Simulated assay, not measured.
Amino acid sequence: MWAMFVDGIAALLNQLAAWMDGSYGLAVIALALAVRLALLPMTLHAAEQGWLRQRKLAALKPQLERLRERHAKDPAAHAVAMQSLYREHGIASGLGSGVLTALVQAPMSAGIYAAIHQGVASVGSFLWIPKLARPDLWLALLVAVLSMVAMLFNPMLPEQARTLLHWLPVAISFFMVWHVAAGLGLYWLGSGSVTVLQNLLLRQHVRRLPA
């Protein structure tokens, strides 16, 4: 079943490349954009729910601190009191729609990555990239810059929280793209551009909400 799924995506990529004058790189970017835009309503909703949860937790911080002090010697009672406070303010204890979104995206992304990895061995160049089967430093830098832009537009990351640890995903994206086939990096580039769009939409939406 998995092999059929990957082969189907590989065939789709080949067909897209045929429609785009034989450009496999352009086909990869087009597929990335199509998949992420199709999932955008789901991922945007999950991001909005995460932002609302973060906002509620920030408002409850003094009460949570008092509960922690009150039940310092009884972790079980502290957990019960904390869950009761969450229920009172409509805060889900789990990750909610974020988990569902991840469950949908994970197999899709894995299948697409496998199909691209399978296909780049037989294709050549794209723009400045001489070989899509090999890593490309400039592509890795471009993906890192895009990740940084997405981070800057993310309303879930307040200014005071922008520490070195929060910028770690930017460094990780650079090193990962630098060590994989450029064809996979192009998919990451297309997907990352939709992440920027998602964060812009989320930023505009939360600004319209009452303080």
Rank of each mutant, 00 (worst) to 15 (best):
A59Y: 01
G8A: 03
I116Q: 09
T101N: 14
V143I: 07
I129P: 08
S84A: 14
A81P: 01
R203I: 05
V35S: 03
A34Y: 03
V177E: 01
G185L: 02
W2Y: 07
R36F: 09
Q54H: 04
L44Y: 11
S97C: 04
I172K: 06
V104C: 10
R53K: 15
L31N: 00
L100N: 01
A17G: 08
S109G: 11
L64H: 03
S125D: 15
V196P: 00
R87H: 12
N14R: 15
H78L: 13
V143M: 03
R207T: 10
S23W: 08
W19N: 10
L157Y: 04
S23E: 09
A46Q: 06
V196R: 05
L157A: 14
H89A: 04
L127A: 08
A144W: 07
W167T: 01
Q15E: 11
A30S: 13
Y187G: 00
L16T: 07
A46V: 06
L141Q: 01
A46M: 05
D136C: 07
L67M: 02
A77G: 12
R87N: 10
H89S: 07
G94L: 08
I112A: 03
H45E: 08
K131Q: 15
I129L: 11
G22P: 05
A76C: 00
P210S: 10
L152H: 12
H45T: 10
K73E: 14
H71T: 04
P155Q: 07
K73G: 12
P169K: 03
R203F: 09
R208T: 15
D136N: 10
T101M: 13
G192S: 10
G192P: 03
R36M: 11
Q204W: 13
L146S: 11
E69C: 03
L60E: 01
T101V: 15
A76E: 10
I112W: 04
G50N: 11
A17F: 04
Q83M: 13
V194C: 08
A144N: 03
M4D: 12
T163A: 02
V177D: 00
V196H: 00
A47L: 05
I116E: 05
H78G: 09
S147N: 10
T195Y: 09
L12H: 04
Q63W: 04
V35P: 03
L200T: 00
F153W: 10
L189Q: 01
L52H: 10
A110N: 02
H89L: 01
S147G: 12
Q105H: 08
M82A: 09
L200W: 07
W128A: 04
L100Y: 06
V6A: 03
V80H: 07
V180Q: 02
P41N: 08
V196L: 08
V180T: 14
G111I: 06
R68P: 02
A47E: 02
A30Q: 08
G183F: 03
G192Y: 06
S125K: 15
S23F: 05
G190D: 06
L184R: 03
V99N: 01
V80T: 12
H89P: 02
S193M: 12
V120I: 15
L95D: 00
V99G: 09
A81C: 05
Q118P: 05
I172H: 06
L157I: 14
L33Q: 05
L60S: 00
P41I: 09
P107D: 05
A81K: 02
E65I: 02
I29A: 00
A47G: 12
V196E: 01
Q160P: 01
L146I: 13
A92Q: 14
A171V: 06
